[in-house]
Nucleic acid binder design. Structure first.
Lengths: 328, 328
DNA sequence: TCAAAAGTGTTATCCTTACACCCATGT
DNA sequence: ACATGGGTGTAAGGATAACACTTTTGA
C-alpha cells in the first residue's frame, strides 16, 4: 500500500488598513493547547467527501476558523515538495504518516474588519518581507542582506559563485540593477537557498541557525511550515495581477478617494507612484466615476469620492492599472 | 475513514512544427487493451513515496511514457472539482474509489521530434480549439458558435439572459467586441457551461448530446477526463506569458530566422502580426543576435539566421515580446 | 522575367514622463 | 497666514501603428 496523501488548503487573505497591506494570520495550537511561537496562514484539511471543490472547502473552513466571509478568491499554486511541509496540528488524525500537499489560495477583502476569532490577527506584509517595501526609497535592511548574500555567493567557486552573484544582483537590485517589485518569490527562495531564512535550517532538521539579530530582522519573521513561501507567491501574484486586471478595487470600500486608491496600489506594489500620472492613466481606463460627494477627513482640502464602475467589466475587456513610478 | 485522495499529473507538452503549435497527445488503453476513442494528455499518478517533488515525478513518467526528456516546465493549476474528473485506466489500483485531483503542467520543447512511443502523437491546437485561430482573420466556425450561444442565452430569463449574452459577447468577440486572444479558458468554460462541449453531457452522465456535425466541428474535439480544460489553461498561460517573459525561445531551435520566430509567436497567440513592427520591437529588446549565416530554404530570398541571447536573462530583468497586431 | 519571401525608410499619433503650479480646507 | 493634502496644464521624448518600397534568391 502506498503512502497516503492529505491535501491542505491555505489562504492568504489580504486587506488594506490605514494605507497598509495586511494579511490575516493565525497562531495554531498544538495538542496541549499551547499557541505556536510562529504565525501561520489560516489553513485546514481538504475533505474530499464533504466538499465538491477546493474553493468551497476553503470558504467553509475560513468562515469557521476566522468568522468571516471571503469575496474574491483565486488559486495560487500547489506545493508538494517533501521536506518543506511540516505537518501541523489541525490537519486531522491521518496527517502524521501522510504526505501533505498544500494548495494555496489568494483572497481579497475590502476591509480589515476585526475578526473576533481567537488566535487570529491582521499582520503587515513587512513583518514577513521587510525588504519588499520601497515606498520610502531603498529600504535600509537591504544593506545587511547584501553583505550576507555576497558572502554566500563567495562561499562557492567558479561558475557557481558567478551564478549566485548574478541571481542575487537581479533579485535584490544590487550594484544599481533596477528593482523589480514583482519577483517576490524569487527573492524569498534565494534567501531560503542561501540559508538566511530561518525556515531553511528548520527544514534541514537543524536547530535555529545562528544569525545576528540584525540579519534576522532584515530577512523577516519566519512562519509555520511553508506558509511564508505561499505568502511570497501571493504577493507576487497580486503585484503582477494589479497591472493587467482591475483587482485593487476588490480591496477598496464602496466609495474612496483617488489618494486612498493610490495608497492601496502603493501598499501592494511596494513602490511610490507619481500622483498625476497615476490619475491620468486611471482616467483613461474609465474604471472609476466621481460621486460628487467629498471626504472631509483628509487633513487638507477635502477630496472627491469615487466609485468603481464594476459594470465596465462586462462591457469590454479591461486591463489593470499602470504603475507610473515616482523616481526618487 | 475518509475517502482517499489520488493525485494525477498531466502534462501539456508544446512544440512548433511547420509553423503550427502542436501538443503531445496519447490514446490511453483500457484494461482490455483497447485504445480510447478520445485523445488525452500524457498523465500518470503521483507516488508520494517514489518522488520528492511533483516536477521530478512528472519528468520521470513523461520520459517513460513518451520516451523523451522535458526542458522548460511550469505548473499550471490544480483541478479538484468532483464530477469533472473521470478516473481513467493507468492511475493505479486505488483510483476507482478515490477522489482524483489533477495537477496540470506546461512544458515547452524546441522541436516536435517523433516520439516512437505507441499511442502517442503530435496534434495541432486547432483540433481541440478551432475557434482560437485568428491568423487568417475571424474563423468561420464562429458563426456557428454565435448562433448556439445566443440560443443558450435566450433560454434563460431576465438578468441571467443578459448576463449570459454579455459574457458570450466578450469571450467570443460578438457584435464587434474586440478579440482577446488570452481568454482561452473563459471561452472553453463558457462552451462547457452552455452544454455545447461534449464533455458537459458526459460529466452529467448523459449520453452524447445530440448536436449537429457542424456545431461539433466548431466546438472542437473533446478529450478524456478534464484534459481539454487543462489544455485550455495551458494555452491561456502561454499566450499571456509570451508577452512578459521571453518564453518563445524555448520553442525555437538554436538558430532560426526572424520569420520563423514570428510564425511561432503567431501560431501560439493565434493572431497575425505586423512584420516590421514585430522586428522593430524585437530589436529593442536586444534578445536576439544575427549569426551572419543565411538560411537558403525559405523559398524566396535567403533569410539571416539569429540566435537567442540567453545570457541576457542573467544580465537584467527582461520582458517578453509585444504583439503588434496586423489589422486585417 | 517573375513569383516569393526577406528586409528597410518614414511619418503621424498616442502614451509616458517630467516638470511646476493653483485650490480648498483646518488650525 | 500657513501647513496640508487635493487637483490641474503643458511640453519633450519615445513607443506604436500605418504607410509603401527595395533586395535577393529559385523556378
Amino acid at each position: 500500500m502506498s503512502q497516503s496523501i492529505v491535501i491542505g488548503l491555505s489562504a492568504v487573505i489580504v486587506a488594506i488598513r490605514d494605507g497598509e497591506a495586511m494579511v490575516l494570520t493565525v497562531r495554531p495550537r498544538d495538542a496541549a493547547g499551547r499557541a505556536s511561537e510562529l504565525a501561520g496562514l489560516p489553513f485546514g484539511p481538504f475533505d474530499p467527501q464533504a466538499h465538491r471543490t477546493f474553493e468551497l472547502a476553503l470558504r467553509a473552513f475560513v468562515t469557521q476558523q476566522t468568522r468571516f466571509e471571503l469575496g474574491y478568491v483565486e488559486q495560487l499554486y500547489t506545493f508538494g515538495d517533501r521536506g518543506r511541509e511540516a505537518p501541523v496540528a489541525n490537519m486531522g488524525p491521518d496527517a502524521a504518516a501522510a504526505r501533505v500537499v498544500s494548495v494555496g489560495y489568494l483572497a481579497l477583502t475590502p476591509a480589515a474588519v476585526e475578526t473576533h476569532a481567537p488566535d487570529t490577527e491582521w499582520s503587515s506584509w513587512s513583518r514577513f518581507f521587510p525588504y519588499e517595501d520601497w515606498r520610502g526609497g531603498r529600504p535600509r535592511v537591504l544593506a545587511v542582506l547584501e553583505t550576507a548574500l555576497r558572502r554566500w555567493a563567495c562561499a562557492s567557486r567558479g561558475a557557481e559563485a558567478a551564478n549566485r552573484l548574478a541571481r542575487a544582483r537581479l533579485a535584490f537590485a544590487l550594484d544599481d540593477a533596477p528593482w523589480n517589485e514583482e519577483r517576490v518569490l524569487e527573492r524569498y527562495e534565494l534567501l531560503y537557498e542561501a540559508g538566511l531564512a530561518p525556515e531553511a535550517a528548520r527544514d534541514r532538521g537543524e536547530s535555529c541557525g545562528a544569525v545576528s539579530e540584525e540579519l534576522a530582522a532584515a530577512v523577516g519573521e519566519p512562519m509555520i511550515s511553508d506558509h511564508r513561501r505561499i505568502l511570497a507567491t501571493a504577493l507576487q501574484r497580486l503585484r503582477g495581477k494589479l497591472k493587467y486586471r482591475p483587482v485593487v478595487f476588490e480591496l477598496m470600500p464602496e466609495a474612496f478617494t483617488l489618494s486612498a486608491l493610490q495608497r492601496a496600489v502603493e501598499a501592494i506594489s511596494g513602490v511610490p507612484l507619481h500622483k498625476q500620472n497615476f490619475r491620468r492613466a486611471l482616467e483613461r481606463t474609465a474604471l472609476v466615476e466621481g460621486l460628487g460627494r467629498l471626504d472631509a477627513d483628509t487633513g487638507g482640502r477635502p477630496a472627491e469620492l469615487f466609485r468603481f464602475r464594476r459594470e465596465m467589466l462586462s462591457a469590454r475587456p479591461v486591463s489593470g492599472l499602470s504603475l507610473p513610478l515616482l523616481r526618487d
